[in-house]
């Protein structure tokens, strides 16, 4: 690798992408689809976080909530209101689906901020599966609910007739680009932040730059906390928007 070649000369060791390597937890064998890897471990942690927050935290069913219970209720109310406001009242049935995505992404993002951790949502494979899942679900719901007239989503009846075929082409392209942007946005944001932190950390090898490096890592870390939440929010709200298009395709 180019970065490793550079490090020979300067004494700096750059391995900003090593944190994203998928490796088996036990032994050194090849990564098969069923192998228990660091992906498994950190996804299990995010499941544990969800359980801790939404099941253990609310187990007392208090009228006056404790801190953990009010966080759980806040998450519930936040996503529920988002589904209701963005996708409409008839989309409330899909609320558990969106809640699942939101809680998984938010927990995985924040767990990724733990030092030495593995950020599952920084992998395009993970985000692409979720985005494709959303894309396929939404398309199926659209055709199931509206049949052929779901295609009127692409036929903008408010535009002048000569423009409509061109707009339809653009709409169709943008429709199929949705899962790509949906997945790359999340993975890209998570990967970039973590990689930048690692690069700054590598610079700390030079004693003179070290204080500045620590300062920069602190700043980026703060930014990453913000990004972790915002990206989960963006993913969930875009899912709601796509769902709204499927439920109400007529502009």
């Amino acid at each position: 690798m180019a970065s490793e070649a550079n490090s020979e000369g300067t004494g700096l060791v750059f391995h900003p992408m090593d944190q994203f390597i998928v490796k088996p937890l036990f032994g050194d064998g090849p990564v098969m689809w069923y192998t228990v890897t660091n992906v498994t471990l950190w996804m299990a942690f995010s499941v544990a976080a969800v359980v801790l927050l939404l099941v253990v935290g609310t187990s007392r069913r208090a009228i006056v909530p404790s801190r953990s219970q009010s966080i759980g209720e806040l998450a519930y109310g936040f996503v529920y209101k988002m589904v209701e406001d963005v996708a409409g009242k008839d989309a409330v049935g899909y609320f558990p689906y969106i809640m699942t995505l939101f809680m998984f992404i938010v927990c995985a993002n924040f767990l990724g901020l733990v030092p030495m951790s593995f950020t599952t949502t920084s992998h395009i494979a993970v985000t692409a599966v979720m985005a494709m899942g959303v894309f396929l679900t939404v398309t199926v719901i659209g055709f199931f609910k509206h049949g052929f007239s779901f295609l009127s989503l692409f036929w903008i009846s408010s535009a002048p007739l000569p423009l409509r075929p061109i707009l339809a082409l653009i709409e169709i392209i943008s429709y199929f680009v949705r899962p790509v942007s949906h997945s790359i946005r999340l993975a890209g944001n998570m990967m970039a932040g973590h990689a930048v932190i690692k690069v700054f950390a590598a610079f700390a090898g030079i004693a003179v730059i070290a204080p500045l490096s620590v300062l920069a890592i602190t700043a980026i870390y703060a930014l990453e906390i913000l990004v972790s939440f915002i990206q989960a929010y963006v993913f969930a709200i875009l899912t709601c928007v796509y769902l709204k298009d499927a439920l109400h395709p007529h502009h």
Binding site: W33, L101, F104
Partner: peptide, 27 residues
């Protein structure tokens, strides 16, 4: 980029689906 290492995709997708199903059922 480890993200483009396709040999790990199957593993990630499998565990992701497991995770999402578990979270969905719990929720």
């Amino acid at each position: 980029m480890p993200q483009l290492d396709f040999s790990s995709f199957g593993n990630q997708i499998f565990w992701l689906v497991v995770t999402l199903v578990v979270i969905y059922v719990i929720l």
